[in-house]
Simulated assay, not measured.
Amino acid sequence: MEKLHFDIQIKAEAIKVWSVLWDDFSFRQWTSAFTEGSFYQGDLQEGATIKFLDPKNNGMYSTITKLVPNEEIIFHHLGEIYDGIETPRDLGEVFERYLLTEDENMTHLEVEIHTTEELRSFLEEKFTDALSNVKHLAENQL
C-alpha cells in the first residue's frame, strides 16, 4: 500500500473550499486535472456509495466512511467501474481523506491517500495540479 500526502493553503473560508470540492460544477472543473469530464454520482452522506466516473462511465466506487461538512470526508474505495458496471476488487485499505482546517479566512486543505502502487505515479503527477485548480476556484469564484 502506498501512502501519499498533499496539502495547500487557500485564501478562502472552509465553507467555500468545501463547496468547490463537492459541488457538481466545480468538482468537474478541478478534477479535470485527472481526466477531462470527470464527475461523481451519489449523495454526500456518511455510509452512502459514490461513483467517480469519466465520460465513458469508467472509474471507481466508494463508500463515505466519515463526513463532517466543511471539515472532513473519507472515501473508502471498494472497486472499479467499467462501462458503468461495478467490479468489486479487493483493494485493501485504499482510501482518500480530505481535511479542511480554517484559520482567519485561510483554509489549509490536506489530502491523504492510501492507494495501490500502480496508481502512485499518476496521483503524484496529477494531484498537485488538481489542488491548484481548487485553490484558483475557491479564491476567484463569487
Rank of each mutant, 00 (worst) to 15 (best):
K16L: 05
F52M: 06
N70W: 00
S32K: 03
T65Q: 09
I15V: 08
I64G: 07
W30P: 00
S62V: 08
F75G: 06
M60T: 09
T49W: 11
S62G: 09
R28N: 05
Y40H: 08
A33D: 06
F25Y: 06
Q29V: 03
W22F: 13
K51M: 07
K16W: 04
D24P: 05
F27Q: 03
W22H: 08
E13R: 05
S26G: 01
D54C: 07
N57H: 15
Q29R: 12
F25R: 14
E46C: 00
E71Q: 14
V17S: 08
V20E: 01
G59F: 10
P69Q: 11
V20D: 02
N58W: 12
I73Q: 12
A33C: 02
Q41G: 06
Q41L: 13
W30Q: 01
N70T: 10
I15W: 04
S62C: 13
E46N: 04
S19V: 02
S38Y: 11
V17E: 01
G59D: 15
K66L: 03
K16T: 06
L67W: 12
L21Q: 10
N58R: 04
D43P: 06
M60K: 01
A33L: 04
E46H: 01
V68P: 00
I73S: 10
P55A: 10
S62M: 06
D43H: 02
T31I: 02
Q29W: 02
Q41A: 09
E36N: 14
N57T: 06
E71M: 02
G79N: 05
Y40Q: 03
W18C: 06
A12W: 07
V17P: 15
L44T: 08
S38Q: 15
I50W: 05
K51A: 14
D24A: 08
K51T: 05
E46I: 01
A14C: 04
A14I: 03
F52C: 05
L78N: 13
E46G: 00
D24I: 04
H77S: 04
D23Q: 06
S19W: 02
E72A: 02
A14G: 07
T65K: 04
N58V: 10
K56H: 13
H76M: 07
M60G: 13
K56S: 14
G37R: 09
A12G: 05
S38D: 15
D43T: 02
F27W: 05
H76Y: 13
E46Q: 15
A12F: 07
I15H: 12
D23F: 00
F39G: 07
L78E: 15
F34L: 12
L53W: 15
F27V: 00
G37P: 01
F75T: 05
G37F: 11
N70I: 00
I50T: 03
P69I: 08
E71D: 08
K51L: 11
T35V: 15
D43R: 00
S32A: 14
Y61R: 01
G79I: 11
D54N: 15
R28M: 05
G47W: 14
